[in-house]
Simulated scan of single mutants.
Amino acid sequence: MKSDPHSSRPDASDGHSPQSRLLTQVILETFRLNGGLLSAGDALVGDLGLTSARWQVLGAVALEGRPLSVAQIARRMGLSRQAVQRVVNDLGAAGLVALQDNPDHKRARLVVMTGAGEAAYAEADRRQIVWAKGLVEGLGEEALSACLDVLRRLSARCEGDR
């Protein structure tokens, strides 16, 4: 018996174990969630001159607490250096970041938030906290902790494949 191509529940002949079938559903739902988070992020910070991508790059620098090279930001975010470079260029053109010389590497300049970048990031962070408090209602700390644990373990296993 073949799987119905329109069904979200393939039959047992598809080669999956029950766990790998569930994992596949988790992966698909994660892709859907990622799209929703990016859309929500864009809506939340669009009037600040940010997109989700710009916000993520500012966040990488803010959370590190020190200037980072584009390659360092890319590694922390799991993105290509080229993708991060494009976002850094956009942030620079908007006056939200500046590049400074890197004493450890002449060609890999460091990304530094400007005052305007710090202000935009702080306001984005404030808005995200309010948004997250509304989103989390009724989910429970135990369920969220279990979800976070599984996502971290899956991320570590994926990163081990690189």
Score class of each variant (00 low, 15 high):
residue 110 L to C: 05
residue 21 R to E: 02
residue 140 G to T: 03
residue 68 L to H: 10
residue 48 L to G: 13
residue 81 R to I: 02
residue 35 G to L: 05
residue 130 V to Y: 11
residue 154 L to G: 02
residue 159 E to C: 14
residue 77 M to C: 06
residue 47 D to N: 14
residue 123 E to Y: 08
residue 24 T to L: 09
residue 72 Q to P: 08
residue 58 L to C: 14
residue 11 D to C: 12
residue 158 C to S: 07
residue 127 R to Q: 03
residue 134 G to P: 13
residue 23 L to Y: 08
residue 30 T to M: 15
residue 138 G to M: 01
residue 127 R to W: 04
residue 95 G to P: 11
residue 50 L to W: 08
residue 89 N to V: 07
residue 113 M to K: 11
residue 81 R to Y: 05
residue 35 G to H: 04
residue 54 R to D: 13
residue 150 V to L: 13
residue 30 T to F: 15
residue 91 L to A: 01
residue 123 E to T: 04
residue 117 G to E: 00
residue 83 A to H: 01
residue 62 A to P: 11
residue 147 C to M: 15
residue 2 K to W: 13
residue 63 L to M: 10
residue 147 C to E: 14
residue 96 L to S: 03
residue 13 S to L: 12
residue 11 D to E: 08
residue 50 L to E: 04
residue 128 Q to V: 05
residue 29 E to N: 11
residue 142 E to F: 07
residue 113 M to Q: 15
residue 97 V to H: 09
residue 43 A to I: 01
residue 64 E to H: 09
residue 91 L to H: 00
residue 80 S to M: 12
residue 117 G to M: 05
residue 63 L to Y: 13
residue 16 H to N: 03
residue 13 S to V: 03
residue 144 L to M: 08
residue 5 P to I: 01
residue 13 S to D: 06
residue 73 I to Q: 11
residue 105 H to G: 04
residue 141 E to C: 04
residue 7 S to W: 12
residue 18 P to S: 00
residue 3 S to P: 02
residue 131 W to C: 04
residue 41 G to K: 03
residue 115 G to M: 04
residue 142 E to S: 02
residue 107 R to A: 04
residue 136 V to M: 08
residue 91 L to F: 10
residue 95 G to T: 01
residue 96 L to R: 11
residue 157 R to S: 15
residue 61 V to K: 14
residue 1 M to C: 15
residue 131 W to Q: 01
residue 56 Q to P: 05
residue 28 L to P: 09
residue 88 V to G: 02
residue 101 D to S: 06
residue 153 R to A: 12
residue 50 L to F: 12
residue 90 D to P: 08
residue 138 G to E: 04
residue 42 D to S: 05
residue 29 E to T: 11
residue 125 D to Y: 11
residue 119 A to T: 03
residue 105 H to E: 09
residue 40 A to C: 03
residue 66 R to H: 08
residue 94 A to N: 03
residue 102 N to E: 02
residue 97 V to A: 04
residue 86 R to A: 13
residue 52 S to Y: 15
residue 71 A to H: 05
residue 81 R to D: 05
residue 64 E to Y: 13
residue 101 D to L: 03
residue 116 A to I: 02
residue 146 A to M: 12
residue 89 N to R: 14
residue 89 N to Q: 09
residue 91 L to C: 07
residue 122 A to N: 02
residue 162 R to V: 13
residue 8 S to R: 13
residue 103 P to T: 00
residue 18 P to W: 09
residue 119 A to R: 06
residue 64 E to W: 12
residue 12 A to C: 03
residue 30 T to C: 11
residue 39 S to G: 08
residue 82 Q to M: 07
residue 66 R to A: 06
residue 38 L to N: 07
residue 81 R to L: 01
residue 4 D to G: 04
residue 25 Q to F: 15
residue 19 Q to N: 07
residue 134 G to V: 07
residue 50 L to C: 08
residue 129 I to S: 15
residue 118 E to F: 11
residue 93 A to C: 00
residue 44 L to N: 05
residue 141 E to T: 12
residue 41 G to W: 11
residue 162 R to I: 06
residue 152 R to I: 04
residue 44 L to K: 05
residue 35 G to K: 04
residue 90 D to E: 10
residue 100 Q to I: 06
residue 67 P to W: 10
residue 114 T to E: 04
residue 129 I to G: 14
residue 65 G to M: 13
residue 130 V to K: 11
residue 135 L to K: 07
residue 47 D to Q: 14
residue 116 A to H: 10
residue 93 A to H: 09
residue 120 A to Q: 00
residue 116 A to P: 10
residue 22 L to I: 01
residue 143 A to H: 15
residue 126 R to N: 03
residue 12 A to D: 09
residue 48 L to F: 15
residue 148 L to F: 15
